[in-house]
Each structure stands twice: as structure tokens, then as C-alpha cells.
Amino acid sequence: MWPSRVIEMREEKPGPIWLRLYALTVYLFLYTPILVLILFSFNKSRRNSSWGGFTTSWYATLWHNESLMRALANSLKVACLATLISTVIGTMAALALSRYQFRGRETVGSLAYLPMMVPEIVMGIALLTFFIKMGIQLSIVSVILAHVAFSVGYVTVTVRTRLAGLAGNLEEAAADLGATPMETFWLVTFPRILPGIMSGALLAFTLSFDDFVITFFTAGIGATTLPLKIYSMLKFGVTPEVNAISTIMLAFTVCLLALWSRLESDPKSLGR
């Protein structure tokens, strides 16, 4: 009986008042700018300094801004393709890393973390240099390649974690019942790691969709993505349109991350 009471107590005991005030301050500091941005995307006045009443007309203007819509289309194209490619490569890498013993396995395994550590600007310059040296035209293709390069590691790490957490010898059980290695993969391994793959893919998509620095270095003419477009719009100041498109991006990203955290926290979702 009593162990459950101990847990209850731990869960229900609130922190001291100063700790709660401190947490509140931190959150206010972090989120006030974002809240202001969202608020001013509904501002009737063009100036960001004063409130002129509520309107949703800026969102309608966005819809008719052709170059902005083109940038959005580019962003979606890049994010989808980069996600697809990095998910396939990343999943295969994770399988190889956890299934096979080979020389340099540890090194390759830690290299997967590298793109997460390397400063984005360094990664951007390195990729730019690489594309120029290799004679690859800067275009939407180079952007996709660059995005694959930085997101593949995230997929590998996520899928690897999932593979490591697979309970028992399910694959041996499948083989024992007469499943060939191929059948075992598609009938047992794949369904079990699918949540990991999905969560890796979502992460890759979010990172690609939001990326500015690396895209800035590797995009050619006609490959302007949404973040690049927003940046160029800033030349005319922080207009309500910029606030509006930023709000949409924010909402979109938050949705993706919410989906991702659901996949991560609930091992059974989609895995059934």
C-alpha cells in the first residue's frame, strides 16, 4: 500500500512560492516577444508601435502575395524531399549501426550526432564550399542536399533509440516461426520501429522547414524558401505581414512538434 502513497505525495507537493514565481518570470521572458508578435499580426495599424484595432486582413494579403506563396511552395518541396531522403538513409544507417558489427562502428555512430553540434554557420559555409568545389549549381537541389545532410543524423539517432528499446527477441521469435530475414523485417522490425521513424521524419521536416542559415548559404536563384523570403521582407521593416506569416509558421511548427512529442512519449501510438 504505502509505496503508492509516497509517489502521490511526490507528485502533488507544490514547489515553494519563490520557485513558482521564478519559473513564471523565465517563461514570461521567453514567450513575451512571441506573444507580442502574434498580437501585432492582428493589428490594424501598419506601425508596430501602436495598437490600431483588431483585423485579420494581413492574413488575406499574404494569400495574394505571389512571391511569398512561391517561397512557401519551395519550402514545402524542400522539406518533403529532404525528409523523405533523410528518413530512408537515416533509418538504414540506424539499422546497420545496431545490427552489424563492423570496423569504425562506434565512430560512425557518434558522427551521427555531429550535425547537431556543429554551428549552423560552419555547416553552411562547408556545404557551400563543397558544392562549389564539386561543380554543383546552387539551386533547389543543393538546398535539398544540404537539408538532408543536417537532418539525417536526427533520424538515425531517433530510430536507433527506438531499436535499442525493442523488448525481447521478437526477431528471433519470427525466425523461429519460419519468417525469412525479409519477412522478419517487414512483419516485425518495421512495425515496431515505425513510431521512431515517424518521429525522426517529423523532426527532420520541422528542422528543414524552419532552417535559415544553411539555406541562406546553399540556395541559388529561384530557390528562395519561406525563411529566406521573410528575411528579405524585413528590409521594409517589421510589417504586420511579416508578423502574420511568422505566426503561421509558428503555429505550423508547434503542431509538428506536438505531434512529435506525442510519438516520443507514447510508444504504442502507430506502433500497433
Binding site: 525481447g168 521478437l170 519470427a174 523461429d176 516461426l177 519460419g178 519468417a179 530475414p181 515496431r192
Partner: peptide, 16 residues
Amino acid sequence: YRRNVNTVFQSYSLFP
């Protein structure tokens, strides 16, 4: 997968 034997595993290893 080609042997005519079957195993009951210690941890059961049922497919969840």
C-alpha cells in the same frame, strides 16, 4: 527459419 523446431522463449516474445 528453415528448421522444423519451435521455441517458447523465456520472455515469451509475443508480437505486441
